[in-house]
């Protein structure tokens, strides 16, 4: 089986630039420049193969999102070797990049461009995106008039229609009504079957079980469990 993502001894030191001292301390010489280093990932070894749908589990601050962002090229590891062999797409903050003054339709183009599509490719997907979002009657009005649920629908519809080999998802099913959430999960499950590899950071074990076939649990920046079957925390 071919490896799509390979992490060898990956560690990540996250510098926090903190200059919280007062102006008075600066002029009295008591100021000290302070950079806190947090070891966000510690010696991670992980091979993710073609066909694997991996859930990253763990408490807040355990390193799930940092690991996902490291795989996604947003953070560079301080140590170790990271290889991502295929084209990937990220779903970290679902409505990020949208323009509130632009219409739903324009935002489809905007998000499409940001995710590397050209106008022709977006044109081809347009009707599917609009249909999936169920926003046909609102697609030509600025999204500033949308409810948060409508924005999530639009953003999800765009994200789901982008084809990719590897999909990196940070939990995003926060808003939107239950009916749309169920529909999204169902479509996502179908969509995920079409992609080669999924890495999904989540707290929702039930959702993870319905989508994933491998479960990696992190704690304090380290992998503490890596299994094909999981019964609960």
């Amino acid at each position: 089986m071919s490896v799509n993502i390979s992490l060898k001894n990956i560690s990540l030191k996250y510098p926090i630039y903190n200059t919280y001292k007062s102006f008075r301390s600066l002029i009295t010489g008591k100021y000290k420049k302070k950079i806190n280093i947090i070891k966000a990932l510690k010696n991670i070894n992980l091979n993710i193969y073609k066909g694997e749908k991996v859930a990253l589990l763990g408490r807040n601050g355990s390193g799930k999102t940092t690991l996902l962002k490291t795989i996604g090229g947003i953070y560079n590891p301080s140590e170790g070797e990271l290889i991502v062999n295929k084209k990937y797409s990220t779903l970290f903050d679902i409505d990020m990049g949208m323009n509130n003054e632009a219409t739903g339709l324009e935002n489809i183009y905007l998000m499409g461009y940001l995710r590397g599509l050209n106008s022709k490719q977006i044109d081809e997907k347009l009707s599917k995106i609009v249909e999936f979002s169920e926003l046909e009657n609102f697609i030509n009005i600025p999204i500033t008039a949308y409810s948060s649920g409508m924005i999530v629908r639009l953003a999800t519809a765009i994200a789901i229609e982008i084809n990719t080999d590897i999909l990196l998802i940070d939990e995003f099913f926060g808003a939107g009504d239950q009916k749309f959430k169920d529909k999204t999960v169902n479509v996502l499950i179908n969509k995920i079957n079409e992609i080669e590899t999924l890495v999904f950071a989540t707290h929702d074990l039930k959702l993870a079980k319905s989508i994933c076939n491998r479960f990696v649990t992190l704690e304090d920046g380290q992998i503490i469990d890596d299994t094909k079957n999981i019964s609960g925390f």
Partner: peptide, 9 residues
């Protein structure tokens, strides 16, 4: 910031 850190642009 969002494009760089959330969308990975």
């Amino acid at each position: 910031k969002g494009l760089l850190l959330s969308l990975g642009i």
